[in-house]
Every structure is written in C-alpha cells, then in structure tokens.
Design a protein around this nucleic acid. Sequence first.
DNA 1: ACAAACCAGACGACTGGTCATATATTTTCT
DNA 2: AGAAAATATATGACCAGTCGTCTGGTTTGT
Lengths: 195, 195
Amino acid sequence: MSKRELKKDHLLDAGLQVMATRGYNGTSIKDIVDAADVPKGSFYTYFKSKEDFAVEALEKVTEERIQHNRHLLGNRSIPPLERLNRFFIDNIGECDQGIKGGCFIGNMCQEMSDSSEVIRLKVRQMLRNNTQAIEDVLEEARLDGSLNSPIASAVLAEFLFNAWEGTLMRMKASKCREPMNAFLMLLPEILGNRA
Amino acid sequence: MSKRELKKDHLLDAGLQVMATRGYNGTSIKDIVDAADVPKGSFYTYFKSKEDFAVEALEKVTEERIQHNRHLLGNRSIPPLERLNRFFIDNIGECDQGIKGGCFIGNMCQEMSDSSEVIRLKVRQMLRNNTQAIEDVLEEARLDGSLNSPIASAVLAEFLFNAWEGTLMRMKASKCREPMNAFLMLLPEILGNRA
DNA sequence: ACAAACCAGACGACTGGTCATATATTTTCT
DNA sequence: AGAAAATATATGACCAGTCGTCTGGTTTGT
C-alpha cells in the first residue's frame, strides 16, 4: 500500500468514525480532516466530493465486514446455524460501542436514501451483500438438515437481517441491551428449532 | 383550535414532510418556512429552536399514530392477533409513500440519537409507546388463548417492533416491497401458529 | 528541470438565530 | 360604546459563523 493510499485510508478511517456518530449532514469536511489531522485543502486530493467520500466509506466498512464474515460465516468447522448465531452475538461487541454510532450503513440508509441516489444505490448494494451472506449460511444449513423451515432462505435471510438492523437502530435510542436480547431470544424460534 | 395553534400545526405538518425526507441536518429553517409558506421570522414565534421543532414534530407523528392505533389495535370486535396482523399490513399503505421518507421516528433515531439528547429521549419514549401498544395486544391474545408462545409478550413486542422498523428502513434503500413481504411472511411464524 | 502531489486561504452561498419595527388584538378608562 | 393605552404577534433585514468547493502557489520526488 503506497503512502498515498495509506493516507487516504487514514482519512477514511477517521472520517468514518465521525460520520458514523454525527451523520452525513452533521459532519463537515473540516470535521473529517481535523479528525485525521490532515490539512483541509488536502481533502479534495483524495476525494472528488463529500458524497464520494461517503460512498468510499460505505465500501470500506462493508469490505471490513466481509472480511469478518469470511472468517466467521464461512468457517465450515462450525455448524452453519451455530455460525449464524455467533455472527449476531459477535456483533454485540461491535454494538456495545455501537450503542453509540450504530451501524454506519443503516445510518446512511435512513439519512441519505432520499437525498443522494449514488449513496442510496451503494447502501442497497451493501445491504444485499450482507443479506446474501446470511442466505448462503441458511442454504448450507438446509443441505445438512439442520434447517427445515418451510420459508425460503432468501426470505428468511432478508427478514433476519432487517430485523437485526432494526435492533441496532433501537439500541441507539434506548442505549441498552434489551433490544439485542429480544433479538437473540427470537432467533432460534425463527430458525424453527421446534420443541 | 385557535388561529395560533392552527398556524403552528400547519408549520409542523409542512416542516415534518420536508424533514422526513431530507433529515434533520439536511433541512434548514428556511426549508421549513418555505414549505409552510410562512415568513422566516415567524418560525421563532412558535418554536424556540430547530431542536424544539423536531421534538414537537416527533410528538405530533406519534400522537397521530396513537389515534390510528386506538382505532385499530384497540378494536375488540376483531381477534387480537388478526388486529396485529392488520396493523402491520395497514402500514404498507403508509409505507408506499414511505418508500420515500420512511418512518420519521426511525429517521430521527438514526440521525440524531448521538447528537441531541432531547431528541434521543423523545424518540425513545415514542418507540416505547409503540412497543407497549403491541405488547397490550399480545397480552390480550394470550388471555383468549390465541397466543401461547413461551416467550414473554414484552420481548415479543420489542422484537416485532424493531424488526418492523428495520423493514421500513430497508425499504428506503431498496425502494421495493420485498422487505415488507418477508416481514409479513414471518409474522405468523413468530406468533407461533404451529402447523 | 519537470510533473505530480499537496495544501493555505479564499469563494460565495447558506446556516441557525436575533431584533427593531410594524401590525393586530386585548384591556383599560372615560 | 368608543378612544386610548398596553400587550402580543408578525416579519424581513441582518448577524456572525460555517458550509462544500476551488484556485493557485509551494513542496516533493524523480
């Protein structure tokens, strides 16, 4: 990674942290460059606009999550349903800090979907990636017999992921674990662990 | 309703529409007064700040929803679970326009929870109100025997409402009905309509 | 010596909020 | 009842500050 790419990455990291808590419109270019300790004029050397920054930031968080998923959701030594469970539990940690901040993709989705088409499309794509990863695990579970819900995996995955995003959102306002606990309590029920 | 209250209400209505689509920070005082066709100086006759406007707007949408709920969720001539189902289905209509805009409470939750404590607390309260309404219906269903999930009504209600908010959010980005369909397909499953 | 990367400062537009003034409305006094 | 005084409401010009973006000179690397 070149020096330039390193600096850009740093700008992305620092700015992301600010934008995740203060939102797109609540974050100024100055906020971003200050957080990264980079001169203001430099911003446009790396990004052609604020919107462009947001899109690249969106890509970065998803890339990081995909990395995380590959280790967790793709780990064939753990039964698929157990992996899925762990995937959500693991994200409690990310969400404890996430009680402040929450899910950046979710934030951008709510705030920007109606204002910026580029951002909306990128958000949609990122959301789809995540849903697909869940669907894959569900399909795997169906093949090994641990899942036999009458509901299609795609539908199940879509529901689960949206419910999870809603849970994260609620945690932002309530600042407690209750929403997450409710989600984790319902998860096995939905996956059809019939008594 | 006095002339003053009428004008304030109009300001609230018009501004709400703008703020629901452009977000808090994406909406200026000028945007609000322009939408209501009211001179800018008048804004501060009715609201002591932009933040105050948002809080009052939050109260207004919830008040309207409570009215709606009282008619629907509180209608004892329909079986409780059927009422709940209809409550969500009914909101598809609201959400078709909501494919743009989405849930104002959800928007404010994501964008402002970490920036304004007053708004966060109001959002939390409004979210609780909604959850409580669902919990009440679930309790009713438990009493008449149509619900016998082993999971506490409070947990069930919390999960369902959060999942629904997540569904609304996803619809903002995807601009289609699929998320809603997935939710409605899973709803009976969660309420425990065992085959 | 040359091109590419960098960045201080400036740009005009716009921000949330204020305020003096102007217009209604209500109260008081005759 | 009607005039006058007092109070409340209305409003657009205006404030200091910030916004996203751009320009044009300076530094850096070759």
